[in-house]
Amino acid sequence: MPAAENRFKSALSRGQLQIGSWVGMADPYLAEITATAGFDWLLVDGEHAPNDLRTIMEQVRVIQASDSHPVVRLPVGETWMIKQVLDAGAQSILIPLVESAEQARDLARAVQYPPNGVRGVGAALARSSRFSGIPDYLATADAQIWLGVQVETRAGLAALDDILGVGRVDGVFVGPADLAADMGYLGRYDVAEVNDLILDALGRIAAAGKAPGILTTDPAFAATCRRAGARFVATTIDVTLYAQAIRQAAQQSRDNLADQT
């Protein structure tokens, strides 16, 4: 019995568009609600959301029970962190702020068992092997792990071709917010100079045979990125969506009831 198929990885390898949402509420109940929405993938954010290993695992668990696929973003690309989330059952991970092929090669080794990598062999204790319930897990797990790296600085873009040359990197996500900040446009997402670099990078990633990714809540720019080659596209952030909706609801209630006395 082999490791479960990574449906997200398989779909991307076939060139299929995968539409996703950011999951930053750090709560499995809310993640489960989001998993009913119909997205192809959901990004459980361990970088900017208040998540730890246990909350990540619980969210991965409820998302895996849906038709959506969980992708875990770690705060940094530490080998021990990668080992823990893989053992907790994540099959797809995204690592921020990758700026060199050397970093990418270290990450590639971290997601593979020896002799190809350095992932610790502790599957007997792990949820990923169904607690030793998958007899062939060690022999088949590597092929089902999807490794995505974020390129989100000028240094990262300068090293993009070298990063794309690391065979075990499956996808490259271009980080618009950090790239804009690194270029001197902190908090601005409408700068042509930044967007031109993003679109150029997406095209280069696609040409190299890797899956290009992006997060944008602007429908027009999302469509432009798709035309440039983006294959995994996040279009929604649960935290901001909820914040906007609940504020609007409060204001509508005030407007509706304010003059009723």
Rank of each mutant, 00 (worst) to 15 (best):
A88M: 10
K83G: 11
I145T: 14
M81R: 09
T79P: 08
T140P: 12
Q91N: 04
P115V: 10
W80P: 00
L138W: 03
L138S: 08
S100L: 00
I95G: 00
V85T: 04
P96L: 02
V76M: 06
I145D: 01
E99H: 06
A108N: 04
A141E: 12
Q103L: 04
L97M: 14
S100Q: 00
R127L: 07
A104S: 11
D142V: 11
L74P: 00
L107T: 00
E78M: 05
W80D: 12
K83W: 00
G120V: 13
A139Q: 15
R127D: 04
Y137A: 08
V76S: 09
R130N: 13
F131M: 15
R130A: 15
L74Y: 00
A104E: 06
D87A: 12
P75D: 08
L107E: 01
G89W: 07
L138T: 09
A101V: 08
L86M: 10
R109C: 02
I82S: 00
F131V: 14
L107M: 12
I95H: 00
Q84A: 15
Y137G: 07
G117P: 05
G117E: 09
A88F: 04
I82D: 01
Q144H: 12
A104F: 07
G89L: 10
L125K: 08
Q84W: 03
Q112G: 02
G133A: 14
L86H: 08
W80T: 14
F131I: 14
R109W: 03
A126S: 15
V76N: 05
R73F: 01
M81C: 03
L97N: 10
S129G: 10
R73D: 03
M81N: 05
A101C: 07
E99L: 02
P114K: 08
I82K: 01
R127V: 13
A104Q: 04
N116Q: 13
A124G: 15
A90M: 06
L125Y: 12
A139I: 06
F131C: 05
V85H: 03
Y137N: 07
Y113N: 06
T140K: 10
Q103E: 15
F131H: 15
P135Y: 03
D106E: 14
E102N: 03
A124T: 15
P114Y: 09
A139H: 10
A124F: 12
D106I: 04
P96V: 03
